[in-house]
Every structure is written in C-alpha cells, then in structure tokens.
Design a protein around this nucleic acid. Structure first.
Lengths: 236, 236
DNA sequence: TATATTTTTATTGTGTACAATCATTATTAT
DNA sequence: ATAATAATGATTGTACACAATAAAAATATA
C-alpha cells in the first residue's frame, strides 16, 4: 500500500486516454475533478497534474476556472485532419522504413495479428485500439521528436474517427476494412525492406481509404453536427 | 491582492518559456521546485502544474521523482530538426497564405519591423524572440490544430538555435541575417497575395538558410557536443 | 584503503483545508 | 411581471503539512 498512489496515477492516465480514444467519453464532455478523484482513489492534486499533461498531449482541453473537457471534434477539425494526416503520416512512415529496428518490426507484426483478430471477432473498440497501437509503433520507429507531437495528436482523432467506421454497416465498409488490413501488411513489408518511397506512398493510400470511409459515413449533410453530440446508436 | 496568484502563474509560465527560448536556462539544466516557487511567489502545487504543461509543450522534461529539466538539444535533435522543419514549415506557410486574416497580416508586419529593428540595434535575444514571434504568427494563421503541435515544438529549438547564430561573428553571417529578413518580407507578400506555392517555397528557402548558418557555426567537429553544455561566451 | 551498508539530508509526491470563482436560485426594485 | 441584484451552492485554484523517494554522508566491514 505504499507506492499505490503512483500506480493509481498511471491507471488514471491510461484510463482517460483509452476513454477518449474509444469515444467512451465523448468529445466536449466535462470532466469532474471530484468524481474522478473518487473513482480513481486519488486526491485532486495529482489528478489535476494528469489533466494538465493530457491537455498538453491534446486529449483534453482546460478552461480557466471551469474544469476540463474532452477535446472537441467538429467538421473543421475533420477537414484539418485530412489535410495534415497524409503529410505527417507519409513522413513518419518514410522515417519508419529508414530507422525501424528489428524488435519494433516484430512488435508491429504482433499488433497487426491482433488487429486482424479484432476484425474477425473483436468489437469496434478492439479494432480501433489495435489500429491505434499499430500506428503508434510506426511513430516510435520514426523516432523524430519534432514530428511526433503532431503525429500523436492525429492518432487521437484517427482513433476516434475509427471508432465510428470500424463498426461496419454495409458491405463496402467491410471491404474497406479488409483493404486497410492489407495496407497494414504492405506497410510492414515496406518497413522491413527499408523501402521508403513505398512506405510514404502507402501512407497516402491508407489515409485516402480512411477519408473515403468517412465520406460514406458522415458526409455531407451531417458535417455541421459536432461528432461529440452523436451517440453511437444513432449511427447504427 | 486577490487574484494575484493566477497572474503569478502566467508570469511564471511566460518567464520559463522565454528563459528556455533565449537559452537563459540551458538545455538539460535542472529546475528546482522550491527555488522557483520562492522566486515567483507561488506554492509548489500550481508551480508543478505549470511544469506539467510546459512538459506537454516540449519546453521541459519531467522525470519520475527527480524533478524537471529544460529539454535537451544534441546533434540527434539537430538532425531531426532539419529533417522535419522544411516539411512542417512548408505546410504551415502554405496554409497561412490560404487562411490568413487581415488583422494577422498586420500583426506580422509589425513584428517584422520589430525584427528589423532588432537586427540593427538589438541584442541576440531581441532578434531571436522577434523571429520567434514572427513564425508563431504564421502558425496562428495556418490554424490547423494537428500541425501546430509539431510546429510549436520546432519553434522552440528554432529559437534556441537562433540564439546562437543571431549573434553574427563574421560577414557571411551578417549577410545571412539580412537575407533572412528579406525572406520574411517575401513571406509576408506571399501570404498577403495568397500565393500558396510561393509561400511553401519560401519556407524551404528559409530553412535552408538556417541550416547553412548552423553548418558554418557548429559543424562538423562540434556536432557531438550537446548544445546545452556550450556557454554563450564559448562561441565568441 | 576500498567497498557495502546504514543513517542522514534534500527533494519530490500526495492529501487535506481553505480561498476564490463561477453558476444557480432567491430576492428586491421598478 | 420583468430585470437587476444579492444570497446560496457547487466547483475550481492555492497553500501548507506530511509521506515517500532519491541522493549524499557517515559508518561499518573486508
């Protein structure tokens, strides 16, 4: 019972991150310090430090004297997302192909198996989290402290968007999912062979597929509705 | 005397940021919580929150049970820097040309005048800070939440590198400085006319100039020395 | 003398009490 | 009845005391 506090802090940090990524906590929703501190058996002091850190990483937003909120997502951020993602991700994958270490490649393969497994019989959450982890590893491979901040910020909303379209509604979405999985395989190959050009091109393809999926799903009439206000059930 | 605490918090935040950017506090140096809390008349609780936030933005690094440090700079980060900067900055300037608002353009012109003034009779610090502010504004113009994290991280080290080469030692460096100033002017024009291609190209030119300056200055023999361990005087 | 072990000191991390601020409801004045 | 104002309640922000940890010094042991 001595160093529990530090552990609980990590638990809180991980739990909040996951809750954001999976849309368990929806964009724009409030975070109550007292409730959180009770739920995670932490006093408000370390809790607030965690919130600050999460804010710095883009998971939550802090407002003066008015508590924290889960980061917003709206049609503006979607537009910004698809503008920034291909470029940053292209650079990350190119660097990943250049710098990846064998241990990391092994990790990537493992996660890809997990992702395929999730596609077969996992939940939307499982798929989104596995996909998120896949891309996180490519970020670690790239190992560029200046690109990582934006890349990580992109991954947050990539996961949240994924939580929507990883629950396939029709045959085309199912096809897109398996296409995404095949692209992951191709990405692994490109990284393994150090083929930077191929890796960069695959990034573009991968994000184009995502954008396609989004367009099927939410465009164009719903674009003015903040994603946070849509419950999951509305989508099904 | 009532809401002073909040003010002092902002003062601390700004002071630390500036101290990092100007190399007043050197990369890798320790931050003592008690000393800082005394210096800024804040208790350690809000102080630690500020440190967490600064860590999220890349100004400082936190280590478990071992306090905060100013973010490191070494030859690896320099390499990463010049790899990431042209791309991110190119995208930022392209978007700035696309989205800039007239008020922002006016601000940019004002800061550019300040920069020129600093070149004529200001200190190295003045120049680096004015240059930093110039680029910050282009970031605000671009207005893309996914690109900004990396851009801001780049600006930190851009300023710190600048603190070195904005103290010109020979005629070539002076020429480079005035070239940088002219590029700023060209950037303003490109943004004002909405010429995205020109803006993007200018970003490349601008960073190439910076890299050039660095190479004159620290390459290649000193590359293995962490920048933080070099005092200013050593350079002159 | 060199190395391990212990004790001491300094620094970071957490819990709690209280102060300041915001949001809501109640009250008063027009 | 409506609008402005004041009291109330809920929530965030700060200070300080103490606990936990790491670093340094002192002691013991080979």
């Amino acid at each position: 019972m001595k160093e529990d506090a530090k552990l609980r802090k990590v638990v809180l940090y991980d739990a909040l991150k996951k809750a954001v990524l999976t849309l368990e906590r929806r964009p724009g929703s409030d975070l109550d310090e007292v409730r959180l501190s009770e739920e995670f058996s932490l006093s408000r002091t370390p809790l607030r430090e965690v919130l600050r850190q999460l804010a710095g990483e883009g998971y939550v937003e802090l407002r003066e004297n008015r508590g924290a909120r889960i980061s917003e997502m709206n049609h503006t951020s979607l537009r910004d997302f698809f503008l920034a993602a291909p470029m940053v991700y292209g650079a990350i994958l190119r660097l990943a192909a250049r710098n990846a270490r064998s241990g990391q490649i092994a990790d990537l393969k493992t996660v890809q198996e997990t992702f395929k497994e999730a596609l077969r019989k996992g939940s939307g959450t499982d798929r989104a989290l596995a996909n998120n982890r896949f891309h996180e590893i490519t970020g670690e491979m790239a190992d560029n402290i200046y690109l990582l901040p934006s890349f990580k910020r992109l991954l947050i909303d990539h996961a949240r968007i994924g939580m929507t379209f990883y629950r396939p509604q029709d045959t085309q979405m199912v096809e897109n999912l398996s296409a995404a999985s095949e692209q992951h395989d191709a990405i692994i190959t490109a990284i393994e062979t150090g083929d930077e050009a191929a890796a960069e091109q695959l990034a573009t393809d991968h994000w184009n597929l995502s954008r396609n999926q989004i367009e099927i799903f939410v465009m164009p009439s719903r674009l003015d509705i903040p994603l946070g206000s849509l419950s999951h059930k509305t989508h099904i």
